[in-house]
Nucleic acid binder design. Structure first.
Length: 937
RNA sequence: GCCUCGAUGGCGGAAUUGGUAGACGCGCUGGAUUCAAAAUCCAGUUCUGGCAACGGAGUGUGGGUUCGAUUCCCACUCGAGGUACCA
């Protein structure tokens, strides 16, 4: 009767699958509880030990909630569109659908081996047409909506059209593009269909606009910031430039305030809320227009300090600003153009991070100060970002550190507008308690009053208005990729048209090559059957395009976050073909009670999904406008990454010790090519990727030594450890316990497989409690006081731990309990039965096996959780630590019935106290009954 | 740069409201069992002085509050994550 985990785990995994033990019903008398994991991207590398960390935690929670009488929804699926599959397709020619399917199979096998209590009947895959049908459907809903500021919600675009027809847009208070012009009902009716559609696009919640991207001409593709290292592409080391492209965007900015306000309603980690708050970046200030000397154009700036407007001594435009080329004088043309080109090579991140180098160029043009009429020079500088605000700042060097540094560097004027403040060394950016001076009607006013006065004045004089600005930008929703959701969109005279929802899904077309086309179109430009026939309502060959009934389809695809923005709702009724989910399902499950996932999604998925949820709420599809009540961020598991050093511009790699002699880029190598002495298996590395096949290696002492760094464990960093071998060698229960035992769920922690033997021997010890002389056997005798005490303190601690998501300490508690019960030689049913139940959420296989051996024919997962009874933990005495000046010197056991004075008397009388005092008289004796005694003196 | 998190023995970590620092586990040392090994069991294991009894120091660094600080406050150092197309 040995603990045979292989046999046990296989048996119970099969039992759960055969009996659909964890299938959740959409109806129940029990209260509902929805436990959600962030679903994985099924990479070719398979699951690594970092993935299951959160899944194990949520599984423990889900299993515990079942014991506590809840109807638990605990689904799982795959975020199966994404770049790596496409990259692989480009390299090997294999269809991403094929590799994705294979990867999913691997993932499923790996997940099954860990014994999760998922309801697999609800599985979703974002790349499945039956799933992305609903992603496309939401896109259409967004297209057919605008944001009404009066109602503060999304409304049907037809309402807007009705108003346009009746009275034009003069009184419309809606979120829209900046440059919408005012028109009357008559104007509207006189517009052509095309003009009308163009206007509507400026209001729709998803719309086409020109946006900046990282363009890599050599690769013919747009790159993620992540794919760019030191300004060149990670793959191949090619040049990357900023380029404007016509793309779909989502008007998430319409929801900025509600996304901010909603954070107060949800129990999410404060750091995560902080990063969303910062991301949304609300600031109050004013829009001010500056005329340009000798031009019709104006420069609009947003400023949070309009009260300092008299301190403006120059203006800075983002180098990408549209007016730059227009206003630059002939004398400055060359310098400006060189600077603009240089800026295009720098990423936004670099530009933001680099505050030390001050750079900029004078355009030669001057703006006119709106109040004084003074000529102020217009500069360009890369510290101004095109995408933020208006891409222009009014520089007030005396009140802003960056403007101050810029002015000092270029010798520009720094007028002081603060009363009695010395600005000879640094700018004064404090708002409170500083009075404004040299500012005409603002003189003597403090910040708050000055703000009110100036905004009023700006509005009165008509060159601006008070405004709340958000850092949040509209989200770019187009990707020039193959492996993503196709848009349900075709183009008629260049205008986007939605395909009616009854014809969804629009299925991703087949292509010969997954690369962009030769003329720079996205990969879908390679598809030959990718046009929309409006009479037959189906996708047809491109040869049939006549722009009368057959039109070209959209060539971009949707981004990675599209599919994950509503999947949590789809799980509620994932097999529904008629609707995204039925009313009954959504009304029963409502929202997610516990969501576990990584904090790296803070401003991506977790913000976009809140936005879509609010939109769905506005449209009446869902009952709540926040979809997850509580969220826990599991910390990452870190791995030790390996790096190789590529000589810039060459396919040559130098060993770590020699890298100082070359100009190199640091590139990840897969850790599996590296041995324990950091030596690279050069052949394995060469075979890894086509581009490395002919690479040269410069060795030291005949070896290639890699660099090592601790980073998060991630497929993109090639430093993953696979859980399969662990399951094979120690079993899933050991893996589950070990992952939890590593440390606090929410903190990051390094992975080291060697520690697993501890939890493994714990399971063997647990098993032995139920075995006498090699046979399974428990006694029906009444447990002793000590045995009950062990059981009940374990129940108490484990329940507290689960409530606090402190799963690591539960594992210790189990170990202590088993150690104690082993020492007590406890074999009593009355103790061992509840013990099996409380361990079940953590180690379900062994618990099931013990439970069935105890004589039960139903799954232990359905058993009620044992009830804690405090009577077993009542103590009559306490071992008091006695401290002298805060240092513990000895302990003394005293009855808990003693009063403070009695305790003090007993301690003072103790011989060791006299020893410690050596004749001194204590100044003070602190007695905290039940806790400590501290003697001062 | 900015935002966020973290730092405790050789290692992962524990200490629930400010009250015995190092629970539990890994590793290591010694022992039992064994022909031997694995497995298992027993004892020890923060550093330091000492044969020992018993001392001294100690939770990244420097200050502060307190009878008492890993815990609270201030100023730093180092590491990690995010920073808008990795998912």
């Amino acid at each position: 009767m040995e603990y045979n985990f292989r046999e046990i785990e296989e048996k119970w995994q099969k039992y759960w699958a055969d009996n659909q033990t964890f299938k959740a019903e959409n109806k129940s008398d029990k209260p509902k509880f929805y436990v959600l994991d962030m679903f994985p991207y099924p990479s070719g590398a398979g699951l690594h030990v970092g993935h299951p960390l959160g899944y194990i935690a949520s599984d423990i929670y889900a299993r515990y909630k079942r014991h506590k009488g809840f109807n638990v929804l605990h689904p799982q699926g795959y975020d199966s569109f994404g770049l790596p599959a496409e990259q692989y397709a480009i390299q090997t020619g294999q269809h991403p659908a094929v590799t994705t399917e294979a990867n999913i199979k691997t993932y499923r096998k790996q997940l099954d081996k860990i014994g999760f209590s998922f309801d697999w009947s609800r599985e979703v895959r974002t790349s499945d047409p039956n799933y992305y049908k609903w992603t496309q459907w939401i896109f259409i809903q967004l297209f057919e909506s605008y944001y009404c500021k009066d109602a503060d919600q999304a409304r049907d675009i037809s309402e807007l059209i009705n108003v346009f027809e009746a009275e034009g847009n003069g009184r419309i208070n809606a979120v829209c593009d900046d440059e919408v012009e005012i028109f009357t009902a008559e104007d509207w009716k006189s517009y052509s269909e095309e003009e009308q559609q163009n206007i509507l696009l400026k209001y729709r919640l998803t719309f086409l606009s020109e946006t900046e991207v990282n363009w890599c001409p050599q690769l013919g593709t747009v790159l993620a910031n992540d794919e760019i290292v030191n300004g060149v592409s990670e793959r191949g080391g090619h040049l990357v430039v900023r380029k404007k492209m016509m793309q779909w965007s989502m008007r998430i900015t319409a929801y900025a305030q509600r996304l901010l306000d909603g954070l107060d309603k949800i129990d999410w980690p404060q750091p995560l809320k902080d990063s969303q708050t910062y991301w949304i970046g609300r600031s109050e200030g004013a829009m001010v227009s500056f005329n340009i000397d000798g031009f019709e154009n104006k420069i609009d700036v947003f400023t949070t300090r309009p009260d300092t407007i008299y301190g403006v001594s120059f203006m800075t435009l983002a180098p990408e600003h549209e007016l730059v080329s227009k206003i630059t004088t002939a004398a400055q043309k060359e310098a400006v153009e060189t600077y603009v080109k240089a800026t295009a090579k720098r990423s936004e991140l670099e530009r933001m991070a680099d505050v030390k180098t001050i750079s900029g160029v004078f355009t030669g043009a001057y703006a006119l100060h709106p109040f004084t009429g003074k000529k102020i020079p217009i500069w360009i500088g890369d510290y101004v970002l095109a995408g933020y605000g208006t891409g222009a700042v009014m520089a007030v060097p005396c009140g802003d550190e960056r403007d101050y540094a810029f002015a000092k560097h270029f010798g520009l004027e720094i007028p002081n507008i603060f009363e009695g403040v010395d600005i000879s060394e640094e700018a004064c950016s404090t708002k409170e308690g500083v009075k404004i001076a040299n500012s005409d009607f603002l003189n003597g006013l403090t910040y708050k009053k000055a703000m009110k006065t100036i905004i009023h004045e700006i509005e009165k004089r008509g060159f601006g208005f008070g405004k709340i600005n958000y850092r949040l930008r509209d989200a770019v929703f187009s990707r020039q990729r193959y492996w993503g959701e196709p848009f349900p969109v075709y183009y008629k005279n260049g205008l986007p048209q939605m395909i009616d929802k009854q014809y969804l899904p629009i299925v991703l077309p087949e292509v010969e090559k997954y690369l962009p086309t030769e003329d720079g179109k996205p990969p879908l430009g390679n598809a030959t059957i990718w046009s929309w026939d409006t009479s037959k309502n189906k996708v047809v060959s491109n040869d049939l395009v006549d722009n009368i009934t057959v039109f070209p389809l959209e060539l971009n695809t949707m981004p990675g976050w599209a599919g994950s923005s509503q999947y949590f709702n789809r799980y509620m009724d994932s097999q529904n073909d008629e609707e995204m989910f039925s009313k009954e399902a959504i009304n029963y499950w409502q929202d997610v009670d516990l969501y576990i996932g990584g904090s790296e999604h803070a401003t991506g998925h977790l913000l976009y999904s809140r936005f879509w949820q609010k939109f769905m709420f506005d449209k009446g599809f869902v009952p709540t406008d926040e979809y997850a009540k509580k969220l826990i961020n599991q910390g990452m598991i870190t791995g030790t990454s390996a790096f190789v050093y590529r000589v810039e511009g060459e396919n040559k790699f130098v060993s770590k010790g020699l890298k100082e002699d070359y100009k190199v880029q640091q590139i990840h190598s897969d850790v599996s090519f590296v041995n324990t002495s950091d030596e690279l298996d050069v052949e394995a590395f060469k075979n890894w990727r086509e581009e490395y096949k002919d690479a040269e290696f410069i060795l030291e002492d005949g070896k290639y030594i890699v660099g090592r760094e601790v980073e998060k464990m991630s497929k993109s960093k090639y430093n993953v450890v696979n859980p399969d071998n662990i399951c094979e060698e120690y079993g899933a229960d050991s893996l589950r316990l070990f992952e939890m035992f590593l440390g606090p769920l929410e903190q990051s922690k390094p992975w080291k497989t060697s520690g697993i033997s501890g939890v493994y021997s714990f399971l063997k010890k647990l098993w032995k409690l139920y075995v006498v002389n090699g046979e399974f056997s428990v006694s029906d005798a009444t447990p002793t006081k000590d045995e009950f005490k062990t059981l009940h303190k374990t129940i108490k601690k484990v329940e507290e731990d689960i409530a606090n998501f402190s799963f690591n300490t539960s594992v210790s508690t189990f170990m202590i309990a088993v150690n104690e019960l082993t020492a007590l030689k406890c074999n009593k049913r009355e103790i061992l039965e509840p013990l099996a139940i409380i361990i079940e959420p953590y180690a379900p296989h062994i618990a099931e096996e013990l439970w069935s051996k105890l004589g039960y024919s139903t799954s232990v997962s359905t058993a009620d959780f044992p009830i804690f009874d405090s009577k077993y933990l009542v103590e009559s005495s306490k071992v008091y630590p006695v401290s002298f000046n805060g240092k513990m010197r000895f302990t003394i056991e005293l009855s808990l019935d003693l009063s403070k004075d009695e305790i003090e008397a007993a301690v003072i009388a103790h011989e060791k106290t006299q020893e410690q005092l050596q004749g001194r008289i204590p100044k003070k004796v602190i007695v905290v009954p039940g806790k400590i005694v501290n003697i001062v003196g």
